[in-house]
Design a protein around this nucleic acid. Structure first.
Length: 594
DNA sequence: GCCGTTTTCGGCCCGACTGTTTTCAGTCG
């Protein structure tokens, strides 16, 4: 186990899980094991680097990190090693921790395999286990058999071509295809996504689906015949799992209709939400499961999820909020937010067109007219056309000004022709640009050009590796210009490609609020930026947000609802989102320059 | 090992599926 001073949250998560695994092998107290599991979960989802928190003396701000684990982490950051962890790993083969990544292999199996086969080096561990399995050596080990040997081979094959998590739209599409197939079986009475897909997280591991049925056998049989299945992993009486052709896993859980609400609740998660919910139930002498609420020996049944929550003395909690970040307390006190919904969005303030100029970044594929017409079709009241600013290297200052002037006139003409053509409702068109915040915090357009715009979306597109302090300064400076109203894709993250850059977000948000600026929730699926956790922090500070698609083609404008998902996960109500406002109100807020 | 509108001690979520075990352990969600 590689332990060093500069471990980031991802490495730290692995380390804590390794300690957990070591404890499992050694038969430590189940509660201590769970404590490490909790701490690992918590670190994995933390919005700040633990090392930074350590520097501020706030390690225990992370739930699940108490006095003991905090002291171990202090030792880690001070000395680059943790004696306590070393002791936990003592007498365990290094290689066993590598095997834990293989689906189907847990700590005990991993230990047994590495020990019996004499595997020590972690790097070649998986390969050597596979070789042993292919030679039929594993079935001879006590406790293993032919079948488990095959399972190990298949698990390793999956591990070898393992891909990252799916983006939300990929998972949504996969689920839709699967649900369409399942619905052909008449025994399927109701069918819904579960898990992180139902909670609408930015990335999804497996697709989980619930089925209400009076004949689970028929449903499972139909499931097993899914033409897109590469192999069936498991199929019991009520649940089954398969690997889709794409390599993705799909699980179904069936339940009788009168218990369907309990099933939905149980498998929507998150894990932490359910654990907390069951604790609340236990205090009332009730026990929760996918079958219902058990009081003594009697299981109360719930066909719908709302009644399930109500029975526990709380309001129904929207799936997007089920992360155990205060939603259960809020539900008990009837204080859940009324979340924003897609039909409340009245406009898109960040779209790109193919307007012909030498752009600083990629242009759109459709014309201004086409994009505006699409916005009109979507029923929007307004749209802000915000191409990238012209390249600063290819234009002198005066040229930049004249380019923006030309484009402004062009857009005016389009607006005019639209008004002439349309008899009925006319969409309001705003003149905007997405302007780079350069490395020194200056905007990539001179004042005279900015002046012509209704507003600017300002974004970072270059020099992203920068210290937290410098990036914070850069963002504040970029946002200082009166026309800079929206901070575009604020963290710059690209899901499964690149981490967002670091900045002091609390400071940025306070600045944004004080200066009447807005922060974007970019709906593009690999961005979803602001991330939901930061949406929550921004809203708590009182920042107003705007959900934009950043469309580069007509079809992209349909993806707004993914941005709404992120907003909902961050507890956003319509009042937090400025593009739920009617045009006149929006104009007041957006076009005022203070 | 964590945590606290009953508690700084004494609790800590729940069940399905699989394989090899003849009664249950390991893994997963």
């Amino acid at each position: 186990m590689n332990i060093h001073k500069n471990m980031n949250n991802q490495e730290l998560t692995r380390l804590l899980r390794a300690v957990e695994a070591a404890y499992r092998v050694k038969g430590e107290s189940p509660f201590r094991i769970r404590a490490y599991d909790n701490a690992a979960d918590s670190v994995e989802h933390a919005t700040r680097e633990l090392k930074d928190l350590w520097e501020e003396g706030r390690l225990q701000d992370i739930p699940g990190v108490g006095a003991n684990i905090a002291s171990h982490l202090e030792e880690l950051y001070e000395t680059g090693d943790v004696k306590h962890f070393r002791r936990a790993f003592k007498n365990l083969p290094e290689a066993m921790f590598e095997l834990l990544e293989v689906p189907g292999i847990g700590p005990k199996t991993s230990y047994k395999l590495t020990k019996t086969l004499g595997i020590t080096k972690s790097r070649s561990a998986v390969k050597r286990v596979k070789q042993a399995a292919l030679k039929g050596k594993i079935r001879k080990i006590e406790g293993f058999g032919e079948e488990s040997e095959n399972q190990i081979i298949k698990g390793i094959e999956e591990f070898e071509r393992r891909e990252n998590r799916m983006l939300l739209p990929t998972a949504t599409q996969l689920a839709e295809e699967f649900i369409a197939y399942m619905t052909k079986e008449k025994a399927v009475l109701r069918i819904d996504p579960l898990g992180s897909l139902r909670r609408r997280t930015a990335t999804i591991g497996d697709v989980d689906v619930a089925v209400a049925t009076r004949n689970a056998g028929k449903v499972i049989d139909h499931f097993k015949k899914f033409p897109q299945a590469k192999r069936i992993l498991a199929a019991g009486e009520n649940t089954a799992r398969l690997i889709h052709r794409s390599g993705r896993q799909i699980d179904i859980k069936t339940q009788i209709p009168k218990r369907y609400g309990a099933l939905l609740q149980h498998f929507t998660g998150s894990k932490n939400h359910n654990i907390h919910l069951r604790e609340v139930a236990l205090e009332k002498g009730r026990s929760l499961s996918e079958h219902g609420i058990k009081v003594g020996k009697i299981t109360q049944e719930y066909s719908d999820e709302e009644k399930f929550y109500n029975a526990l003395g709380m309001d129904w909690i929207p799936p997007e909020l089920r992360e155990d970040t205060g939603e259960i307390e809020a539900a008990i006190h009837h204080a859940l937010p009324k979340l924003v919904s897609p039909n409340q969005i009245r406009g898109d303030l960040h779209i790109h067109t193919n307007y012909p100029w030498q752009s600083s970044h990629d242009m759109g594929t459709h014309s201004m007219k086409e994009m505006i017409e699409k916005a009109n079709e979507l029923g929007y009241d307004y749209v802000g056309v915000s191409d990238h600013n012209p390249s600063t290297s290819a234009h002198k200052t005066q040229q930049l000004i004249s380019e923006v002037k030309k484009r402004t006139e062009f857009l005016e003409q389009i607006k005019y022709s639209l008004e002439k053509k349309s008899e009925k409702r006319i969409i309001k068109v705003l003149n905007s640009l997405e302007v780079d915040i350069l490395a020194d915090g200056k905007l990539a357009l001179p004042d005279e050009a900015l002046k012509m715009l209704d507003y600017a979306v300002v974004s970072v597109h270059s020099s992203m590796r920068m210290s937290n302090a410098r990036m914070t300064q850069r963002l504040l400076k970029g946002l200082s210009h009166p026309k800079a109203k929206i901070l575009g894709h604020p963290t710059g993250r690209l899901l499964s490609k690149r981490e967002g850059y670091e900045a002091d977000w609390e400071r940025v948000f306070k600045f944004v609020k004080a200066k009447n600026k807005f922060v974007e929730i970019n709906a593009w699926s690999s961005r979803l930026d602001l991330p939901d956790t930061l949406v929550r922090i921004a809203i708590d500070i009182g920042v107003k947000l705007v959900i934009n698609t950043d469309s580069h083609a007509v079809s992209h404008m349909d993806l707004m609802h993914y941005g709404v998902d992120a907003a909902r996960r961050g507890w956003a109500s319509p009042k937090d989102i400025i593009n739920t406002l009617p045009f006149e109100k929006l104009k007041e807020m957006l076009l005022e320059t203070t």
